[in-house]
Simulated scan of single mutants.
Amino acid sequence: MLTELVIAAEPGEDVNPLIPAWYDIVYSIIPFALVLLLFWKVVLPRMQKMLDERAAKIEGGIEQAESAQAEAKVALEKYNAMLAEARAEAAKIREQARVDGGAILAELKEQASSEAARITATAQAQIEAERQAALVSLRSEVGSLAIDLASGVMGESLADDKKATALVDRFLADLEKSETAAK
Rank of each mutant, 00 (worst) to 15 (best):
M1T: 15
L2T: 09
E4F: 14
E4D: 13
E4W: 09
I7H: 13
A9S: 06
P11D: 07
N16E: 01
L18H: 07
Y23E: 13
D24S: 13
Y27R: 09
S28L: 12
S28Q: 09
F32Y: 00
F32E: 08
V35S: 05
W40L: 11
W40H: 07
V42N: 06
L44S: 06
Q48L: 04
L51M: 15
D52I: 14
E66N: 01
A70S: 04
A70W: 03
E71G: 10
K73M: 03
V74S: 10
A75Y: 02
E77Q: 02
Y79C: 03
M82P: 00
M82G: 01
A84V: 02
E85K: 11
A88M: 12
A90E: 08
A91D: 06
I93P: 04
I93T: 05
E95Y: 02
Q96D: 15
G101M: 07
G101P: 03
G102C: 00
I104S: 09
I104W: 06
A106Y: 01
A106E: 05
E107L: 05
E110F: 10
Q111V: 05
A112G: 04
A112F: 04
A116T: 15
R118G: 04
R118S: 09
I119S: 11
T120D: 05
T120G: 02
A129D: 06
A129C: 06
R131I: 13
R131Y: 05
V136R: 13
L138S: 08
L138M: 01
L138D: 07
R139G: 14
E141W: 07
V142A: 09
G143A: 13
G143I: 09
S144N: 12
L145G: 08
L145K: 00
L145N: 03
D148R: 09
D148M: 13
L149D: 05
L149M: 01
E156R: 06
S157E: 10
D160I: 11
L172F: 07
K177M: 00
S178R: 07
